[in-house]
Nucleic acid binder design. Sequence first.
DNA 1: TCTTGACCTCAAGTTTGGTTGAGGTCCTAG
DNA 2: CTAGGACCTCAACCAAACTTGAGGTCAAGA
Lengths: 158, 158
Amino acid sequence: MSKLPGHGLPMTLAVGEVARRSGVAVSTLHFYESKGLIRSERTVGNQRRYARAVLRRVAFIRVAQRVGISLADIAAALEVLPPREAPSRQDWTRLSAAWRAELDERMAQLKKLRDTLDDCIGCGCLSIDRCRLRNPQDRSAREGAGPRRLLVKTQRQA
Amino acid sequence: MSKLPGHGLPMTLAVGEVARRSGVAVSTLHFYESKGLIRSERTVGNQRRYARAVLRRVAFIRVAQRVGISLADIAAALEVLPPREAPSRQDWTRLSAAWRAELDERMAQLKKLRDTLDDCIGCGCLSIDRCRLRNPQDRSAREGAGPRRLLVKTQRQA
DNA sequence: TCTTGACCTCAAGTTTGGTTGAGGTCCTAG
DNA sequence: CTAGGACCTCAACCAAACTTGAGGTCAAGA
């Protein structure tokens, strides 16, 4: 494996290395590559070699997935980052701008979900239907489709 | 459709009604029922009739799903709620206790993801590798598997 | 040189979370 | 009493996100 001159650190990472360090399976890295989420160079022997920046990319993918964002959306977001070199400040600016609203919305939903539970504990009522979360006289039935109260906003861009 | 004595409000809801009000497809309601997430009574003619509490149950399911929680986990959480009547305060207490940690963790991850982007904008560096998010000398390589820095905690209870 | 573990491709299988369609029943207004 | 829209079941299909397996190559140490 190629080394950085002056250190003992490898300049590129083999797929098993990346798997070990990122905590995802080798097959998953192949899969991500096939979807264009990450990329690699090849050795003369056709083996993948990854730039170190791939580790942050993979970490980013996993965290985004965990909060419910699809690989397709993640891929779209990652397209603004340079495929090879470490991303620049501007690159992250663009990514952030694209995702800020989405992330804020998901935070709001998560908070609402958590607070709903908390409220139902703290409100002192015996029935959920008597606390501030109730839907009096089913008033919202006339307001169009979609879950109300809990759901802050729903539309996807797809 | 059966009416509440004294009001013009139906006491139970047909599946199409629930679909319209909750914003999910009829087929999805059938699917949720097959998975035990919701339940219904049947008319003499074998048609489903839902208690009004099903609307909040469905709203809960959709919000939880949206933040990345699987139907299996949601189903497990909903098992602490009574299948027929509106849930009591104690019921929600149990649900909240079971989910509090999970929700807090997901909030933390989401925040980390958002703040990571913000930091990379605000930190004034040209390269992501020079800001506080970098992984100096790949120090974390020795600390076991899993994405580090971004990922707060990962294990599922599966 | 040999062997062993890490790597390669490609196809097929799995799980989750649904949707679609065929073929039939229910029920209400005209 | 009949037409239609809403409902029923069940099986098949779909997409996303991976995993598994077969069959073969690469590379580094003994």
